[in-house]
Amino acid sequence: MGEPPLRVLVVDDEPPIRRLLRTSLGAHGYDVVEAASAQEAIVKSSTERLDLIILDLGLPDEDGLDVIRRIREWSRIPIIVLSVRGREADKIEALDRGADDYVTKPFSMGELLARIRAALRRRLQSEVEEPVFRSGGLTVDLARRIVSVEGREVKLTPTEYALLRVLVTHAGKVVTHRQLLREVWGPVYVNETHYLRVYIGHLRRKIEPDPTHPRYILTEPGVGYRLRSPDEG
């Protein structure tokens, strides 16, 4: 391609995790920079030319959440957080503070790579608006407001469409319950999770081949929803 390789900063205090990511990401053409602490992460993120940061929340010297806040003071670089199951509040907090996405440890490399690609693509997309979204058999034409599954057009109510549109604009990324409620219903409704459940249910029944085992609108337990990006298999 002739372009310089994309540079990823990996922030984790565990050397085996850093080694794993260095090897795997390296094999997929990324240039990996490493940091073992919050301090090092902040220094490297301000001195190195970087395209993406992978940040572990459990750092020895400082809370990973604070690292997000500090980096966000000057940079919009995509940040993917590594967190463990059972710390859903941390994930929501990370997303609220400006993280782009999270991956739950232990993660599969395929999943992480897909999230990295989705985050990088979104950054490019924000400059060039993509009017038609495609993932598997799902097509959403944002310009003409047409949704179709396997070539068959699907009728959506205004709320259903608004919900799907928010998910499409963040395709591949987790959108928290609060964010969805705020963008679709308005800031007063951020705690009305049941609205969301009802409409996600409606939407799934219309666009999913098997609503119990959704293929497009994925549930992120305790955090929110994610529209499967075209990068994922």
């Binding site: 859903e88 319950h177 459940r197 249910g201 119990t212 085992h213 549930t219 337990p221 305790g222």
Partner: peptide, 28 residues
């Protein structure tokens, strides 16, 4: 970890409205 949380009383419920179908989908 769950046992430790249950036994130490650190298990805090984050209740929200849930469709059981969705939970079943995620678990399976």
């Amino acid at each position: 970890l769950d046992v430790t949380r249950l036994e130490s009383g650190a298990l805090r419920l984050h209740r929200e409205w849930v469709e059981i179908e969705e939970v079943i989908g995620v678990a399976s």
